[in-house]
Design a protein around this nucleic acid. Structure first.
Lengths: 354, 354
DNA sequence: TTGAAAGCGCTAACAC
DNA sequence: GTGTTAGCGCTTTCAA
């Protein structure tokens, strides 16, 4: 008993036309109840399943969403994907996931593939800032939503991001409120909007708090663990000349690197140094001491991306340059035990923990 | 300037037939060099991209692999997907990822969708043990590879798993070699092959070591954190009647739950209790004390799945009941600081750490 | 070496 | 309400 029957097959068995069967399958207009019932019965009997490929070709829509991310193992991306999948699958779409492994070449390759596959929309956490390849999608009016990072292209685009300035504000305000006024930071590449905004947020919060920005306390890394480690070492090596009582590190892996450097120096957190990280996920709750961290609402990002996508997909008719959305979601801060009250210029033997 | 040209479009511009252009695009037999060059030039000029959907329909192959997993946020699954993607994308396939969220209903739904989409193959970490739905794929000779867990179906299937008996052996042998002979364990559901095998491995290793299995030291959970917590509490509550000096917990989230219970009781690891977990990922290295853990080679699993898949995909002609593979990969143990030497029946005040 | 034609499975005018 | 027809973009016989 063969299993892949076509509309034609079913139609023939019932001595009716394929179009009528199609209409019944898709609950389209006007099929006589009696006919519909016969069809439904046959559909079940022969275990008919529509062929999405043929449908896609005919309708010029694949119901497929392409997603390219630099590393699926990063909890924040996995969460975002999960959020997207949840909303989008309920609307009849599926997602093709591509892991560019932080490589521009692979990203470019995947963009080609996804274009060939005629995905209906694209979600992109790009590592290629020039974004030339993406233009093709935009020109064809294929919705593209950027996450995590914005490319430098001369065109209005859809994006769902966190408010990175606010992220830094959360961190700095927290430290300032604990009495810190010598706060070091490790920032990612300021070539990227993400890094740039986080730096601006850092500087602005300090300024607003009446604290002078000391550029010697700002280090620039590349989001990887090693750069966090190296930057932290440099800060610590220089600590007698440029003292600081707290440090704010702006990515997960740089946070990890920085913490390793700190522990290597034999320093205790929070006693010797207050620390705020970024995206330091602790699913297990076993990280000890717990690290205060700024977090992106990764799942929420996914949900918002999906909503935006669906909106775009529904209004495919709208003009090319329809109004684009740049959604800025709020980051939040997770308080654990890595920050401590600091009494400036006072001689308390031991400060009180928060 | 429109961007989606078809073969026909290109052919017309060159006053040749679409079939010739097709042949050139696919590097097929016998196209005169001169014609080929003209075609290639035009392809570039008009920025032609083949339409995979049409190709899929014609060739009855989508080059799409469906993957269904219970939770993409689990590091082990993310790793496996990454492994699969790496190999498979190099071979021209893409993956559709579906997160069943541990729900049988969603799993069933996704199976439907993937079947409709005519994926060329399926990778399945099933939560539905009966696996009726999967039969359809098998009947159509669509390759299916199981990971993580085996369904109870009466049919030979492909699978890539770890050797779960060996996993338990690694854990128990380690503890035994440290002198422990009262070893508790928390096992997942033994309805599933995974849990069953881990239990057998536990019992066998003890027996081989000449230690009598004490069933009161075996608890059964459901892989979730809460069950790990509850099981551990029961063990601890009963510890004066059924003493144990070490515990082996067989899943990540149960490990986390168990550890929380242990800490709540004010016990110190490894001083008061030696502990071996399962899949306790510590990407950051910040878990303190570090937890000894059995690990699945998740990325390697992905690579093997992909290789197996490609093999199946190449031999589509082979008979329905071609020889199936059950690949058992080796788990490994990660040693940190959660186990300690235990001198049975001796009165050392403090044991020596490993 | 190339072209014509058929057809993959489906949907949507359009006619009746 | 239903059937006929055309066609989505591609590949592949078969014939020239």
């Amino acid at each position: 008993m063969k299993s892949q029957y076509t509309l034609e097959d079913i139609a023939k068995k019932l001595n009716i036309s394929a179009s009528t069967v199609s209409r019944a399958v898709n609950n389209k207009s006007s099929v006589k109840k009696e006919t519909r019932d016969r069809i439904m019965k046959a559909l079940k009997e022969y275990n008919y399943t529509p062929n999405e490929v043929a449908r896609s070709l005919k309708l010029n829509a694949t119901n497929l969403i392409g997603i390219i991310i630099p590393d699926i193992r990063e909890t924040t991306f996995a969460n975002t994907i999960k959020g997207i999948d949840k909303v989008i699958s309920a609307a009849g779409y599926s997602i093709i996931v591509c892991d560019s492994n932080e490589s521009k070449t692979k990203e470019a390759h995947y963009l080609d593939i996804l274009y060939q596959r005629r995905v209906d929309a694209l979600v992109l956490a790009t590592v290629e800032l020039k974004g030339r390849q993406v233009l093709r999608f935009l020109e064809d009016d294929i919705p593209v939503v950027f996450i995590d990072n914005l490319p430098k292209i001369d065109r209005s685009i859809d994006a769902v991001l966190i408010d990175n300035m606010k992220a830094s504000e959360l961190a700095i305000n927290r430290l300032v409120s604990l009495g810190h006024d010598q706060i070091a930071t490790i920032i990612g590449s300021i070539e990227e909007t993400t890094g740039y905004d986080r730096m601006i947020g850092y500087e602005r919060s300090l300024t607003i708090a009446g604290i002078k920005v000391n550029r010697n306390l700002i280090m620039y890394g590349d989001y990887k663990e090693e750069s966090g480690y190296n930057c932290m070492r440099m800060l610590l090596d220089n600590r007698d000349k440029e003292p600081f009582t707290a440090v704010y590190v702006t990515s997960e892996m740089m946070s990890v690197g920085a913490l390793k450097a700190i522990y290597e120096y034999g320093l205790k957190i929070p006693d010797d140094l207050s620390f705020i990280g970024f995206d330091v996920y602790d699913k297990t709750g076993l990280i000890n001491p717990g690290i205060d961290t700024i977090m992106q609402p990764a799942n929420e990002i996914g949900l918002q991306v999906a909503e935006l996508l669906l909106k775009r997909l529904e209004n495919k008719d709208s003009p090319t340059q329809s109004f684009k959305h740049k959604l800025l979601l709020d980051p939040y801060i997770e308080l654990k035990q890595s920050c401590k009250l600091y009494r400036t210029r006072k001689t308390l033997t031991s400060s009180v923990a928060d």
